[in-house]
Amino acid sequence: MLEAVGERVLRAPKELLYALGFMVEIVRNIPAYFQMQRRGGGGGVLKMQILFTGVNALSIVAVLSLAIGAVIIIQGLSILPQLGQGQLIYTILIAVITRELGPILTAFIVIARSGTAISTELGGMVVDHQIEAYMATGLNPITYLAVPRVLGVVISLVLLNIYFNFFGLVGSFLVTQLVQPLALEEYLFGLYGSVTLRDFVASFAKSIIFGMIIGSVATYQGLSVERAGTEVPIRAIKAVGQGITLTVIANAAITLVSYL
């Protein structure tokens, strides 16, 4: 037992370094991917990844952001004016929708939908020896398989975050009209006064970093399958767990840095 624990402890840093090296390898292969795309290959993978990860997740993101935005506005408008702080609703809305929940919730949705899908797909390809076939034909699996998926996740997350903000800030206003009518000018004026460029920069930065983390973890776990088909679901579960953990840690770190 002691030996097993010792082996795990000694293996953990090696695996972490290997994963970091994998992420660096993905970033290093991005120019190679675009070169390959210019030559007419690999473009379909990126397009389909954005379709599956971004477009197909739009409905759930829209519903989620509408509901959360409406709840924040309704609760804020009923509580904050009693404290003489009605204007704070816009600051809270920006902080919650744009800075915090937008990036992190879209990231969770993408982890649950696409993180598992990518790791399962790549794991299946390893089991079916498709990766070996790509290598045999001279295609780098990182360039051809991992990079477009990671890029697709990053682009999808950024776009989904924008839609989350759209539905959260604008759509929730429409929902609020059904419960507690509010003049559009008043709403926009309050919003303009509260939002800053830093809020958007922080939000987009989070989306890009979360996308890199989710895509890298999912492809890494998928390509880590060795030979058995039973390893595939195990790697998919690991991709979800590690993706969520690393995303939450990165979120806290970026929030901390943006407020310094």
Partner: peptide, 25 residues
């Protein structure tokens, strides 16, 4: 086409929002 529309709509929304906020501020 779907991915293109998905991307363009998001970019348009960001540009409109930035211009509106920029004018407001």
């Amino acid at each position: 086409q779907i991915v293109g529309a998905f991307t363009i709509l998001a970019v348009v929304f960001v540009i409109v929002l930035m211009v509106a906020i920029g004018r407001g501020q």
